[in-house]
Design a protein around this nucleic acid. Sequence first.
DNA 1: GTCTATATCAAGATAGAC
DNA 2: GTCTATCTTGATATAGAC
Lengths: 186, 186
Amino acid sequence: MPDTQSSKPNTREAILDAAEAVVTEEGAGRLTIDAVVARSGFSKGGVLYHFPSKIALLEGMVARLMGTIEHDLEAAETAAEQAGEPVASHLLRVIADKRHLESDLPVALLAASAEQPHLLDPARALNQRLWERIREASNDPIQALILLLVIDGMSFNDLIKFKQFSDEDRAAVKARLIAMSEDLFQ
Amino acid sequence: MPDTQSSKPNTREAILDAAEAVVTEEGAGRLTIDAVVARSGFSKGGVLYHFPSKIALLEGMVARLMGTIEHDLEAAETAAEQAGEPVASHLLRVIADKRHLESDLPVALLAASAEQPHLLDPARALNQRLWERIREASNDPIQALILLLVIDGMSFNDLIKFKQFSDEDRAAVKARLIAMSEDLFQ
DNA sequence: GTCTATATCAAGATAGAC
DNA sequence: GTCTATCTTGATATAGAC
């Protein structure tokens, strides 16, 4: 997505900021264009100029979230290379990082995707690419997959507050995962 | 929930059937009272007599889904006892069973829970109870938790069509899980 | 690019007859 | 318990001025 309209891209960002604020502070169900308008300070017309529909707004939110995650992954990659450590385990660490899941933003996007299944396609693509990379870097693809699935299971449970984990459980699982990943990437 | 209004409980069920049909055939986003009205053949007033609000309807759907899952779990329990086998591994098998996740119903309820967080509480409670049981029956709680998390990860991915698994991957993971659960319940 | 004003509409919900 | 008819609201989107 080339941001060729370089005049004032900050309005777009401000609108996305407002949208995220609405979601995280008022809940996923309150994400309406009116709410974004109220919070951004812009008018309805102004908001709809940048995002002609609610779907466009949601797509913008997904795109920006994917961008930040991708950025983190690239940072982890260069860090791993500079440290001379296996890239895949650094990527795993980013995936396991709860930071991106701590807001209600992913929940909102998940909910919206029930109506607009295509909405999560960029996330699916990123996820798939990542999986391929880790799989190929491992010498035991099934073990790697299981590792990823444990992280997915934990993340999803956190996301929708399904299973509640104690800190002890978290730490113990993490330790077990590290043990499982020994010699997985060489 | 005592069904003391024994005159004609079938209308309720018919409405729930219609609601599920709407969700599975038209998608989660199309679940509106009007759609349920159209599909059930009842009038709006009739539907709203049984479920005074959309939330009430969703709660009814959750309750019924939990009921069927609970029923499956009890069946697995008695089957395990009669076969003299560990109950926990039979329960695990029910959890891993994709049957309940194959429709779009859980996706719809998940989406709705973004607006009504309490909606999934019965599911959370069932899930939690189940986890406690399996954990207590195991001689390695963390290993048991990891097992559950792999299943969760797989289920959630299937649910929202995130990672796509080949049949080979599925079979391989399953085999690995069975290996992991050896000697876990005695 | 941003604004105000307005059109449109779908959905949830109510009232009261039968 | 089920129906028809109607009310109300809140949200998406458009039109056109500035």
